[in-house]
């Protein structure tokens, strides 16, 4: 990407950003990529509206949503765990939405995020320059030092740098470390990066993140891409912790209702002596804490520790007369 202009869309009466594209990228792949990106409907990803083509058909510029809020880079680190998770959650959402559309951003870093006039964080600047050119002999790797995982420096059998979603997950982890610690460990900028050490451990940060969150973030910056979690799981875990104690579950057994939430955390259900089940809410999830006799959740036997899915049917007992519990959970959403 090179020149950037803020323009007025005279048809739809809105401010837009027009970014001219560097040449050298295969036009067909670029258009495919832009078409896919324009389909992403995410609150936390800048919307790509359109492309501009020359008469020859070559795409020369991208038209996207204009953001007029503050930068994310250069802000003081969040003061506590809640503020830290509130900062990371929208970033995780945006990347997760991109991955859900089968795309890789390729250039996640603090400088590629900004807020709009309602303070909503949005990710922009897809690493379009990193789209490799099929058939080309040598491929140049454009990369952002510190935010690029070790595997990005390797080439595959046909000499290409391969970008998977795990690249974005690493970049997210490095971004999180930078935003929370105020700096990245020096080794991160080596080629390839030198990882590990206490500076790169989220458990040592002053925000004192909950252990499962710190462990998940540590896994994001794992050297092996197979050890990194899926972005969807990172988003989900952050969301659950931001919604701590705000969930409810509703159980109906033989016409009788029980509600579990932060004010009433556990319940025990039984149908005669044939099946007994106890469930408890730990602020994050509803889990089985006791089971005896014949108990099936969605027709599968369960063990202690089993987490109830968003909707399920629990059957107590066997044979023709059974206790049937229908379960549904509330869907609070993180609003920032």
């Amino acid at each position: 990407m090179s020149d950037t202009l803020v323009c007025e869309d005279a048809h739809l009466d809105r401010a837009v950003v027009v970014k001219s594209l560097k040449s050298g990228v295969d036009p067909k792949r670029l258009v495919d990529e832009l078409a896919a990106l324009s389909a992403i409907r995410s609150k936390h990803v800048v919307q790509i509206y359109d492309v501009i083509r020359e008469k020859s058909g070559t795409v020369i510029a991208v038209v996207e949503e204009y953001l007029d809020g503050p930068e994310v880079d250069g802000q003081p680190p969040p003061k506590n765990a809640k503020k830290a998770m509130e900062l990371l959650y929208p970033i995780a959402c945006g990347i997760s939405d991109i991955h859900a559309h089968g795309r890789v951003h390729r250039d996640i870093k603090p400088a590629n995020m900004k807020r709009d006039d309602e303070s909503c964080l949005k990710i922009f600047d897809f690493g379009l320059a990193k789209i490799s050119v099929p058939g080309g002999a040598t491929k140049n790797l454009y990369f952002s030092p510190g935010y690029t995982p070790p595997e990005a420096f390797n080439k595959n059998a046909s000499g290409e740098h391969v970008f998977t979603t795990a690249l974005d997950v690493f970049a997210f982890g490095a971004t999180a470390l930078f935003l929370l610690a105020g700096k990245l460990p020096k080794g991160f900028s080596d080629i390839p990066p030198t990882l590990g050490g206490t500076e790169a451990d989220f458990k040592t940060l002053p925000q004192k993140l909950p252990d499962p969150i710190a462990e998940m973030l540590n896994a994001c910056i794992a050297a092996e891409r197979g050890d990194r979690p899926a972005m969807h799981d990172v988003k989900d875990l952050l969301g659950r912790h931001l919604l701590f104690d705000r969930h409810r579950a509703n159980f109906v057994l033989n016409g009788k209702e029980s509600v579990l939430d932060a004010s009433k955390r556990s319940a025990k259900f039984s149908f005669g002596t044939e099946g007994v089940l106890a469930v408890s809410y730990d602020g994050i999830a509803f889990r089985v804490t006791e089971v005896s006799g014949a108990v099936h959740i969605n027709n599968m036997p369960v063990d202690v520790g089993f987490e109830l899915p968003g909707a399920c049917v629990i059957v107590l007992g066997v044979g023709r007369v059974r206790g049937i519990i229908t379960v549904s959970l509330s869907h609070p959403e993180v609003s920032l």
Binding site: A249, V259, S328, S330
Partner: peptide
Amino acid sequence: LVAECEELCYTRD
């Protein structure tokens, strides 16, 4: 209204 809906135990089937 959004906040009220968040309190409802519904399913995403």
